[in-house]
Amino acid sequence: MKERMLIRLNNLLVKVFFIVFVITISGSANSEEKKIEFIKNNWSFEGIFGTFNRASLQRGYQVYQEVCSGCHSIQHLSYRNLAEKGGPEFTLDKVKSIAAQFEILDGPNDDGEMFTRPRRLSDKFANPYPNVQAATAANGGAYPPDMSVLVKARKGEWNYIYSLLLGYEEVSAGYELDDGVYYNKYMPGNKIMMSQPLFEGAVEYADGTQATETQMAKDVTTFLTWAAEPHLEARHKMGFKVFIFLIILLTLVYFSKQKVWSRLDSKENSDQKDETFDKVERAVTEYEGEDPKTFK
C-alpha cells in the first residue's frame, strides 16, 4: 500500500521534472543576458592543429606598439619573447633595437645613484605609466587593463577582443552618453571608456599590408592571443604526440587486459563448470519420484 504511494510519488516527480526542465530551458533562453554573437573570423590558432601566423603576429606587435601601448601595459612580456619560438619570431638584432628604444631605471651604481639605461632582451616591456593609480587618473578614472592575459580574462576570448575593437557604433537619438564614454555593441553594459582605437591607416605596416580596421583588429588580436598564450603552438604539438601515444598505449593495454582475463576460461575454470553440470544432470536423471514434469 505504502509502496504504491511511493510509486505514485515517483511518477509525479517525473512529470514535475519535465515541466521544470522545460521552464528552465525556456527561462535561460529569454533571460536578461541577450546572447550576443561575436563577429566571425577565421583564426589560424584555433583548433587542435592551430598555429600562429608569424606575419600577423609581427603586424599585431606593430599595432600594439603604435596604438595601444600609449595606455595599456603588457607587463608580463619580455622583449626576448619577441624573438623566441612560437611567437612573432623577429630576429635577435631587430628585437635588441626595439628594446633599446625604451629606457629602464637601474641602479644604484657604485656612487649610490639610480640611473636610466636602454632596455635589453632580458628586460620586460616598458609600461606607459609608473603605476595603476597614474594610469587610472590619466584615463578619466578607468584603468586601461594590462594586456598580458587580457584575451584569457574575457568571456569569448579572442572573438570578444576582435568584436569589441570593431564594435563601436553610433547611438540612437535619446541614448544618454556621458563625456568620455562611448557606445560599444560588445562591451557588457555597452558603455566603454576607451574611444575607438583603430581607424583606417592608423598604422603604416612595415610589410606593406593595407591597414584597414579589420586587418589591424585581426592582427592585434592575434598578437594579444599569443601574448596570453605564448606556448600555444608547443602545447598543440605536444598534445598531438601525446594523443597518438595514448591511443597506441590504450590499444595495447586493452588487448593485454583481454589476454589476462582470458585465463579465466582456463582449464581450471571450465573443469569446475563441467563438474557442476554433471552434478545437476545426475540429480535430474536419478529422480525416482512421481512427477517427471516438475520433479516435485
Binding site: 594523443f243 595514448l246 598505449l249 590504450l250 593495454v253 586493452y254 593485454s256 587486459k257 589476462v260 582475463w261
Partner: peptide, 12 residues
Amino acid sequence: MKDLLAMLVFIL
C-alpha cells in the same frame, strides 16, 4: 589490468 585500462581512458 582493468583499473589500468579505465585509468588510461580517464587520463585521455
